[in-house]
Design a protein around this nucleic acid. Structure first.
Length: 562
RNA sequence: GCGCCUGUAGCUCAGUAGGACAGAGCAGCGGCCUUCUAAGCCGCGGGUCAGAGGUUCGAAUCCUCUCAGGCGCGCCA
């Protein structure tokens, strides 16, 4: 439709120029907009505004010339108006709009998908929380943002993989083992002091208790070298298992859990290989006993250490090797979802990617801001960073997975999020999750009602019969407004995927549900007029399909009754 | 000090590859269930788009500066 209209405008410009009615140098780009107000038509084009200067005529005059030279367009466009400073406003025919409905039903789950992402295999790496403790609320937000980002990319045809990077190397694993050992000794009744940097959570105590249950006191009194590997490994496995289970409950599945240890394995470990390669390429150098990557050459504030003076590689070195591995596996694009407190890391990572021979834009970092938990408007845990102290499990246990996921998606990810637990828990119209789900449930109740009344257009389970229905009864303005909303869905998905803006989907669904609820209240779907009933059921079916597709992108369920 | 992000209605936030009078939800006030689930609908009030300049036919949107808030600036992970 958009291409047809821009083709017509282009043709009109050409006609006008060859007729000598309009002078301009190069044909301008034709930009089409969706006017915010219905009074401005369905498609607007400001091309005359930009052309006015070169044509040395007022924008409205230019617009009139264009209109006079438009080719015929019956069927698609009802009328064209010149409005405001010189906009061309196109009014599409009712038939064009209602013809969308059978298309939506026929496309089903595929409605709103695109193919333009097909050529760019993408990995989304997200969560990647250190396996030293349970996931907190902030991780939960990152998890949903990453998951839905991947869903959006898949919806536009991108081959996409989800990956969790497990930081299972380095000193923190030792600290985890020692922390567990301290709890173990305490469980045996010993009074052991706590080093400052140890993890103290109760989950450590549980793990220590399990070791004691299994092994009694056999690990007490031994030198650290003998017990540390066992304690570290036991704690690590237990915690990672918890994380997996929690993410699974949260509806998030990874294609791969990538262990940082892989980067240090073998005779020719990837980390060493990357460092050597960068050195050979002159991108890395030795100074003060350390090995540095010259990231300042690509915009970073300072060069970064890859190997410390004591010979130990840094987290950054692992990350460089990891990203090289990502690209080596064939991903054309890599998306990292990070907590916003890591934003200072972007510069060095982009620089590293560049030095690995990639375009820095092959790496996209999505930053996810803090979550502040509220309860009835009052901050939880007396901290603006309550999200750091409350586990994801506590929240999902209290308010459910659907509401939690939805609320995490209602803000653009790079904005701080206030999450009111009481609001999220409400089962009323005040809660947007239920509001949207209820619209979907209503559609299905209409199917059931119609089936009862002997209308065989949809089965009670929502399956469409595929019958051809006369949609002329839907040509009133209110109905068309709803249809237009449905027709906008593919563009919303397109936009959200292009910008990696997950929040656009919830906003759209909220508006669609609102329009549907209002329509439902005013208009009877299953009524006395068979032709109208059938037409309106097609409309309802399309609404249900779009809501289901949208909620599906969000990983939120679409119940058929509530 | 430097860098990144943010500043839109009482509150929480959309709207920013410039476009036609600035939107939603919540909160407040007032209405609607003999009608397909009221987990719903309808109406009312409410904004110098932080501030000041600039670019433009046109700026919440782009540029500069100022103010306010958040975050980051390790041979930590």
């Amino acid at each position: 439709m958009a291409t047809q209209i821009s083709d017509m405008i282009r043709a009109a410009l050409g006609n006008a120029r060859s007729a000598g009615a309009l002078a301009f140098d190069a044909p301008p780009a034709i930009v089409l907009e969706s006017p915010k107000q219905a009074a401005h038509g369905d498609v607007a084009c400001p091309v005359a505004l930009g052309l006015a200067k070169q044509a040395r005529r007022s924008p409205r005059d230019v617009a009139q010339v264009i209109v006079d030279h438009l080719p015929p367009m019956e069927g698609l466009v009802d009328k064209v108006e010149i409005a405001g400073p010189g906009f061309l406003n196109f009014y599409l025919s009712a038939g064009y709009w209602t013809a969308q409905l059978p298309d939506i039903l026929a496309a089903g789950a595929a409605y709103g998908t695109h193919a333009w992402g097909a050529g760019r295999p993408t990995m989304v790496e997200f969560v990647s929380a250190n396996p030293t403790g349970p996931l907190h609320v902030g991780h939960g937000r990152g998890a949903v943002v990453g998951d839905v980002t991947a869903n959006l990319l898949a919806a536009v045809g991108t081959p996409v993989k989800r990956e969790y990077y497990v930081n299972d190397v380095g000193n923190q694993m030792n600290i985890l083992g020692r922390s567990t050992h301290v709890r173990y000794l305490q469980a045996l009744g010993q009074d052991v002091p706590w080093p400052d940097d140890h993890y103290r959570g109760d989950y450590i105590k549980d793990i220590a208790q399990r070791i004691q249950d299994a092994d009694g006191d056999r690990w007490a009194g031994l030198p650290e070298a003998q017990w540390l590997p066992h304690f570290s490994a036991t704690a690590y496995q237990a915690i990672l298992g918890e994380i997996r289970d929690e993410l699974d409950r949260f509806g998030i599945r990874f294609d791969q859990w990538y262990s940082e240890r892989e980067l240090y394995r073998g005779d020719d470990p990837p980390v060493q290989r990357v460092i050597d390669g960068l050195k050979a390429a002159g991108a890395a150098y030795e100074q003060d006993g350390a090995t540095w990557l010259a990231t300042t050459r690509h915009g970073d504030d300072k060069d970064r250490v890859m190997v410390r003076g004591n010979g130990v590689t840094t987290y950054f070195a692992s990350d460089v090797a990891y990203h090289q591995d990502k690209f080596a596996r064939g991903f054309a694009r890599v998306i990292d979802v990070w907590g916003a407190d890591h934003h200072g890391y972007i510069g060095r990572m982009k620089a590293a990617v560049t030095m690995l021979g990639r375009d820095p834009d092959d790496l996209t970092v999505v930053l996810v801001q803090l979550v502040s938990l509220l309860r009835d408007g009052v901050p939880v845990a007396m901290s603006t960073r309550a999200g750091e102290f409350v586990t994801l499990k506590e929240v999902t246990d209290e308010i459910g997975v659907d509401a939690t996921r939805f609320f995490f998606l209602t803000r653009k990810s790079d904005a701080q999020l206030e999450f009111d637990l009481e609001l999220a828990k409400q089962r009323t119209a005040d809660n947007p999750v239920y509001y949207i789900q209820y619209a979907h449930a209503r559609v299905h109740q209409l199917f059931a009602k119609a089936a009862e009344a002997g209308v065989d257009l949809f089965k009670a389970d929502g399956a469409f019969s595929g019958q051809t229905v006369d949609l002329a009864p839907l040509h009133d303005a209110e109905t068309l407004a709803l249809v237009k909303q449905l027709a906008a869905y593919p563009d919303v998905v397109d936009d959200a995927a292009r910008e990696l803006a997950v929040h656009k989907i919830p906003y759209y669904l909220q508006e669609l549900a609102a329009r549907f609820h209002a329509y439902y209240y005013k208009n009877r779907f299953v009524g006395d007029d068979p032709a109208l009933t059938r037409a309106r059921l097609v409309l309802a079916g399309a609404v249900g399909q779009v809501i289901k597709n949208g909620l599906g992108l969000l990983g939120v369920s679409a119940p058929t009754r509530m």
